[in-house]
Design a protein around this nucleic acid. Structure first.
Length: 321
DNA sequence: AACGAGCACAACCGCCAGGGA
DNA sequence: CTCCCTGGCGGTTGTGCTCGT
C-alpha cells in the first residue's frame, strides 16, 4: 500500500523516555484515557510519534504491569504456551496479565530460547529426540491442538527440560490457573531488579504519586465515565495489594478490577488494562485460540485441588470461569 | 585498571488487519 | 465497495550494563 510512516519523522524524538515525558503522557492518558494515539503527541506537545506513545504506555506505564524477574512458574507458562501458539506473544501475554508481550518476547529471546536449546542439546545426548516435528527450537504440537491434544501435551511436558528440571513446577495448566488465582498487584513481589529509569516502576510510581495528587479532576465526560480515580491507578497500587498479601478475602479495589482477565472469561469487547478498552484487537485475536483455551482451563480445573496447596497466599481470590 | 565480549532490555520498524468515511 | 487511517503485533536494533580477561 505504501502507506506513510505513522508520524512525521522530522523533529520526532527517539530513544529512552524521560521521567518528564512519562509524566506528561500519563497525565494525558489519565485525563483522556488511552486511545486516539495520534492526538497524544499533538495535544501533549511530546516530541514522540503516536506509536511510541502507545508503546510506552502499553509496555511500561499502564497499571497492572509487573516487572522484574520471571518466576519459574511464569517461565513454564511461557514455554508451554510458546510451544502451543508459537511466537504469538500477545496471545501468550494474555495469559500472563501482568507481563507485556514485549517483556515476554524479550525474555524468550534472551533467556528461554537459549535455556531450551541448552537443555535440548543435553537431552539429545542422553535421550532419544522427541518424535514431534518442530518449527522452532522446541517441540511444537501444532497439528495436535484440539482433539487428542492432551496426551501430546503431557508427553511434551514430560520431555520438556524446563518442566523436569525443577520439581517446583508441576503442571503448566495448573500454573495458568495459579496465575488466574494470583491476579494481584504487579508490585507485589517488589522485585524490580533493574536500576535504570525506564524499568523502574518505583520511580514512575513515585512520580505519578506526587503528580496525580495535583491533577485536576477530569474535564472530559466520556473519559470520566471510564476513568477510575487517579490514586487508584497510579499510587503503586499502593494499598491495593495489601489485602492480598494479608491473605484476606476483601473484594479487590479499583486497581485489581483494572487488571485484564485471561481470555476465556472475557468477551471481545471487554475493558482492557487500566479499565480502558485499549486492547480490543488483541482480544479479538484470541478467538482462534478457544480450543487451546478450553483445554488449558479444563486441565486447570483438574488441578484446582493441587493449586489450593500451592497458592496458599492467593487461594482466597475466587477463580472466575 | 582497562578493554572487549556478551547480555539484557527498551525502543523502533515494518507489516497487517479492522473499522470508519 | 474502496480507500485510508489507526492501532496492534512480531521481528529487529540500539544502547547501557556486567562480567571476564
Amino acid at each position: 500500500m505504501g502507506r506513510p510512516p505513522c508520524c512525521d519523522k522530522v523533529g520526532i524524538k527517539k530513544g529512552p523516555w524521560t521521567p518528564e515525558e512519562d509524566i506528561i503522557l500519563v497525565s494525558y492518558i489519565q485525563e483522556h484515557g488511552p486511545g486516539n494515539w495520534r492526538s497524544v503527541p499533538i495535544n501533549t506537545g511530546l516530541m514522540r510519534c503516536s506509536k511510541s506513545c502507545r508503546l510506552r504506555w502499553t509496555n511500561y506505564l499502564r497499571p497492572g504491569i509487573r516487572r522484574g524477574n520471571f518466576t519459574p512458574h511464569e517461565e513454564g507458562i511461557i514455554v508451554h504456551l510458546q510451544s502451543l501458539l508459537g511466537n504469538r506473544w500477545a496471545a501468550i501475554a494474555s495469559y500472563l496479565p501482568q507481563r507485556t508481550d514485549n517483556d515476554i518476547k524479550n525474555y524468550w529471546n534472551t533467556h528461554l530460547k537459549k535455556k531450551l536449546q541448552k537443555h535440548q542439546a543435553i537431552g539429545a545426548i542422553f535421550a532419544p529426540p522427541p518424535p514431534a516435528e518442530s518449527s522452532s527450537s522446541i517441540v511444537i504440537p501444532t497439528t495436535t491442538a484440539g482433539a487428542g491434544h492432551v496426551d501430546h501435551h503431557h508427553d511434551m511436558i514430560a520431555n520438556n527440560p524446563l518442566f523436569s528440571k525443577d520439581n517446583k513446577y508441576s503442571h503448566p495448566a495448573a500454573e495458568v490457573t495459579q496465575q488466574l488465582i494470583a491476579r494481584r498487584s504487579p508490585f507485589a513481589d517488589g522485585d524490580s531488579s533493574s536500576s535504570s529509569y525506564a524499568s523502574s516502576m518505583d520511580n514512575i510510581s513515585k512520580l505519578l504519586n506526587g503528580f496525580m495528587k495535583q491533577s485536576s479532576p477530569p474535564q472530559n465526560d466520556a473519559a470520566a465515565d471510564i476513568k477510575p480515580p487517579a490514586t487508584d491507578i497510579f499510587n503503586p497500587l499502593l494499598s491495593s495489594f495489601n489485602h492480598i498479601s494479608g491473605g484476606t478475602t476483601t473484594t479487590l479495589p479499583a486497581f485489581n478490577d483494572m487488571l485484564p482477565s485471561p481470555p476465556p472469561q472475557q468477551p471481545a469487547t471487554l475493558v482492557g488494562h487500566g479499565g480502558y478498552d485499549d486492547e480490543p484487537k488483541q482480544r479479538h485475536q484470541q478467538g482462534p485460540l478457544s480450543p487451546i483455551e478450553k483445554w488449558l482451563f479444563e486441565e486447570a480445573a483438574e488441578q484446582a485441588v493441587d493449586l489450593m496447596d500451592l497458592s496458599d497466599a492467593c487461594c482466597s481470590v475466587p477463580i472466575m470461569f
